[in-house]
């Protein structure tokens, strides 16, 4: 089991969701976050998106997947989020120790999907 965390441009969210659905990944958590990479936001075309100094608005996706879904999930995010410009974002992958479905108490691989 893996935990995929992706930081993407807010305006690519619809495309990323679209690609994830195509890859049959339907379980995601979306949050709005602030942050910046090593350019510290200065290369952004839209200065107005700056907030709290040079922090930019980003979307964070949290997706828990079983191992066979890892590659399709990453590919889908890249396909949806990539514009080729600075600021497209990053994807982080962790090993996931466990997962519990609250309603049934099921654990592990079966609980994710």
């Amino acid at each position: 089991m893996k935990m995929v965390i992706a930081i993407i441009q807010p305006y690519r969210l619809e495309e990323v969701k679209e690609e994830l659905y195509k890859a049959d990944v339907n379980l995601i958590t979306v949050s709005e976050v602030l942050g910046h990479g090593k350019q510290k936001g200065v290369t952004e075309v839209y200065r107005g998106t700056k907030e709290s100094g040079n922090l930019l608005r980003k979307i964070r996706l949290d997706i828990a997947v079983n191992d066979n879904f890892l590659e399709p999930t990453i590919n889908a995010i890249v396909k949806g989020a990539k514009t080729g410009e600075v600021g497209d974002g990053k994807i982080f992958v962790y090993d996931l120790k466990d997962c519990v479905r609250i309603r049934t108490g099921e654990k592990g691989v079966i609980a994710i999907g």
Binding site: Y46, G48, T49, E51
Partner: peptide, 22 residues
Amino acid sequence: EKEEALGLDISQHNERAYTLVE
């Protein structure tokens, strides 16, 4: 398309109605 996805507040007027932090 990009301006529409960004929203007209930023793309046409370079300002936002709501902040995220503060």
